[in-house]
Design a protein around this nucleic acid. Structure first.
Lengths: 229, 229
DNA sequence: CCGGCATAGTGTCCGGAGCACACCCGAGTC
DNA sequence: GACTCGGGTGTGCTCCGGACACTATGCCGG
């Protein structure tokens, strides 16, 4: 089967930058390429867009195929299209960025991926194509976004302690936050539901668990509220 | 001449949302299509990407070809790729968004554009394709961006009065601002150079002119300063 | 020449938010 | 039962943002 056009056309791919939080390390999902070019190199999961699927659908499909993940939050990041970014010819890639609860999923490599694994974002192997640029762009976006949209919760398990939440912000923003002020601010928003449970199996006083109240957030959002820090 | 591939490929276009400020109305540049589909309809300027040019270069080229404009600020906005957004088949478009000084350019329609003209963003004709969505996305971005990056200045002539600047913000943000607070804040940033000139040809007390100090801004930016409102 | 008009330009006060800061609590360990 | 380790809490000061109204200047017209 072959396809003929009057003018040359680029290929179109999607790539996904998937972040996960492991205690106090921010991780990114990488796959090891099983095919040329860059066979054996680590890269962001992604692949070609089918002719009848939307870009976002393609991103979800490729991600699931190559790693088994089905992210909650997924949004378009940026489109990379330098003429020489792929040795196979002109390939445009639309990058997506996603957040997942690291605990909730098991990785499973498949299709063109030899393996899938989490790497610390501060310490990745050399990446294929321009994927290092893409990763960087995603990190910037995450930093900017986490402060004024409550997307950070996507990285945590459903029940979490305030300390975990604070650590998350500290890791993403790369700076320390004051414990009392952080708690004061986040609780004042009235978006967390205080549970009658405490964490288990810790060798010190157990911290109270909280849950993010999505419903309340949507209400406030409609009313023109804006989340900040 | 024809091009044959093993798998089907989408076409790739770029489209530009160009904003200009006319006194106190925010304008967007539209062209009237001279070819099918949507012949005669107004649309955003844009066109096909060549195989050896970057996306941004394509956006600049198309914009210049169809309207004669060469924008200062140009940045990627979003990529639109719904399978049915173009009746000719699968066409992905990378949208760019640009700001120009309305006064500094003369429009000149060419190539596939029958005509080029400025329209108030609040009152555009019916647009081709999904260009209304694109315009909307651009407006949101402009609103968000103008508050924490000094891009608004791209819309004004090099020398402007504080009142002009305030109007710009009021128009973009769609709300009134307090004159004294606005002046206080903007002057406190120390990014405006006060000139020894006043506006001309007005039938009332003439306002002092200011110029944006790009050099100082870049310095502050490096030092981790951030512009806000 | 004078009065009117249109916009320029300017300072203060108040309340809320951010930030710095230190101590007691509870649970498990040895 | 003493120690250790993080959990959890309140206060005061400062600074910033927002509300608010009057005088100054230049042009125009009568």
């Amino acid at each position: 089967m072959s396809y003929t056009y009057e003018y040359p056309r680029p290929s179109l791919t999607v790539d996904c930058v998937v972040f996960g939080l492991d205690d106090d390390d921010l991780k990114v999902l990488l796959i090891q390429r099983g095919v040329e070019p860059f066979e054996g190199r680590w890269a962001l999961p992604g692949g070609f867009v089918k002719m009848d699927e939307s870009l976002e659908a393609a991103a979800r499909r490729e991600l699931e195929e190559e790693s088994g993940l089905r992210p909650g939050h997924l949004e378009q990041l940026y489109t990379f299209g330098e003429p020489d970014r792929d040795p196979r010819g002109r390939v445009i890639t639309v990058a997506y960025f996603a957040l997942v609860k690291l605990s909730a999923h098991v990785l499973r490599a498949a299709t063109d991926a030899r393996e899938a694994a989490w790497f610390s974002v501060w310490d990745t192997p050399k990446l294929a194509f321009d994927h290092a640029d893409i990763l960087n762009t995603a990190l910037q976006r995450l930093k900017g976004k986490v402060r004024y949209q409550p997307i950070g919760f996507e990285l945590l398990p459903p029940k979490f302690t305030l300390t975990q939440l604070q650590r998350l912000y500290e890791v993403v923003l790369e700076r320390d936050l004051d414990k009392r002020n952080f708690r004061k601010k986040i609780l004042a928003m009235d978006l967390l539901e205080e549970l009658d449970e405490v964490e288990q199996d810790v060798s010190h006083r157990a911290a109270r668990l909280y849950r993010f109240d999505h419903k309340k957030y949507r209400q406030l959002e409609k009313a023109g509220f804006n989340f900040e820090l």
